[in-house]
Amino acid sequence: MAKLASQAPVPVFVAQGDDAPAETARLCLNSTLTIVETPRAAAILLVAGTIPASLIPNLHRLHDQLPHPRATVFWQAEPTDLLSEAVTVRNDDNLVSVLTDTRSSLLSGSHGTEADLLPDAPPNEWRGVGSHGQGGKGMMGGTPYGRPMAMTAADFRDGLELDAYTADFGPFLPMFPPGLVLTLTLQGDVIQKVSVVHLPFAGEGNAGAALLRLLGLPALAKRLLRGPSDDADFKRLIRLSGVRAAIPPGLGCAPNGSDVRERFERLTTDPGNPSKVHVDGVGLGDLLIGLEWHEAMLVLNSFDDESLRAICANTSSPELEEKNGDSMDHEGHAGHMS
């Protein structure tokens, strides 16, 4: 059974770090690997490139979400202290064969599964206020599973007071540019507030392929990654797919008038020459607030890395300023222990 299973494609979740190898994006073209969208579906966590010290707690949290048996492979990166036993791949090694071998030895039992890095305890005590720990403020009570309930806030559309959910998203979220961490406040799936916690990594960027994947066209995304897309066939397929009409007109409009539709066309027809967007004074708040989740993801992925970093830098971000100050170590430690 283990032998048969080891012949199947290896499910890999990629955690992309800074200076990740250029081949990282093209791993999905390899038929012996399946690049999965969630750590829950992966057997191997592939860490490509250096993970900055402030994001190591995030990597450890991600690691613990993989089901057993699991293994971690560091590709052109130094293993973290807690993952010192993990497999390391240098430049010259053949990554794919290391991944398949690790998977086979995991299945046969010769490579033991990695234990949780974080303590098996809820982030807070599961007790609210009241004589029996049953409640909280008003109707919103308690801390189920150690997390307080969302409190009410006015929806900016009509002032209706319902629960506003605030959470950090990223940096290893498949629909986010690698490295980007945002604190988003949502009512339903409409973004109400946004602030930047960590800037996206600078890199070559594959915004065209990311957009195609988000729009549900993974085969065309792979075709774009395979090489220059100046063939007429590719352009015809894009046109026939009708994907242009799936992007709302005027979405994510930059000051120079370019919207997601225009940037998408540029990225897919001429990926080697991304248009430079004039982003002076534009913050993520101007672009994302009021959008639904899927629209916001299209906007985020439609910029080249340089423009997106500039936009994030323009965004008010108390967390980022705080982290750049003295409290960075403390923040990292607190996040890690939770």
Binding site: D64, Q65, H68, D120, A150, G170, L173, G188, G335
Partner: peptide
């Protein structure tokens, strides 16, 4: 054995790409 095993707290955490949720996801929206 996955189902039979005890699912640990770190594994119960919702997938936010490595970030930690500060509040419970149970919420009312319009």
């Amino acid at each position: 054995t996955d189902l039979a095993d005890h699912i640990t707290n770190p594994q119960q955490r919702p997938v936010l790409g490595g970030s930690d949720p500060k509040m419970h996801a149970w919420q009312r929206f319009h």
